[in-house]
Computed example of a mutant assay.
Amino acid sequence: MEDLLKQILSEIKDIKIDIKELKENQNQTNESLNRIESKLDDLEIKNANNHIETIRNLKDITETLDFLTHKENQTEKEVYTIKKRLEIIK
Rank of each mutant, 00 (worst) to 15 (best):
E2G: 00
E2N: 04
E2W: 01
E2Y: 02
L4C: 02
L4M: 04
L4E: 03
L5F: 03
K6W: 07
Q7M: 07
I8R: 14
I8D: 06
L9P: 02
L9V: 04
E11S: 14
E11K: 15
I12Q: 01
K13W: 03
K13I: 04
D14K: 15
D14L: 14
K16D: 11
K16R: 06
I17P: 01
I17E: 11
I17Y: 06
D18Y: 08
D18I: 09
I19L: 13
K20F: 11
L22A: 15
L22V: 13
K23M: 07
K23E: 13
E24F: 03
N25I: 05
N25D: 14
Q26N: 13
Q26S: 11
Q26L: 14
N27T: 12
Q28T: 09
Q28P: 05
T29P: 01
T29G: 02
E31G: 06
E31H: 13
S32G: 09
S32T: 08
L33H: 04
N34E: 11
R35T: 09
I36E: 15
E37W: 10
S38Y: 07
S38G: 10
S38N: 13
K39A: 15
L40T: 05
L40K: 09
D41W: 09
D42Q: 03
D42L: 03
L43V: 04
E44Q: 12
I45E: 04
N47L: 01
N47E: 00
N47V: 00
N47K: 05
N47C: 00
A48R: 14
A48W: 09
A48V: 12
N49R: 03
N50E: 01
N50V: 02
N50F: 05
H51P: 00
I52P: 02
I52N: 09
I52V: 12
E53M: 00
E53F: 03
E53H: 04
E53I: 02
T54S: 08
I55G: 03
I55E: 12
R56L: 07
L58W: 13
K59D: 13
D60V: 08
I61K: 00
I61A: 07
I61V: 08
T62Y: 08
T62P: 05
E63Y: 10
T64P: 10
L65A: 08
D66V: 05
F67D: 06
L68M: 07
L68P: 00
L68N: 02
L68T: 00
T69K: 10
T69F: 07
H70I: 11
H70P: 09
H70E: 15
H70S: 15
K71L: 12
Q74L: 03
Q74H: 00
T75F: 03
K77E: 10
E78H: 05
E78T: 08
V79S: 07
Y80V: 14
Y80S: 15
T81L: 06
K83W: 10
K83I: 15
K83V: 15
K84M: 04
K84T: 03
K84F: 05
R85V: 01
R85E: 00
R85Y: 03
R85F: 02
L86R: 02
E87R: 10
E87Y: 10
E87I: 08
I88R: 03
I88M: 05
I88P: 00
I89S: 05
I89K: 06
K90L: 11
K90D: 09
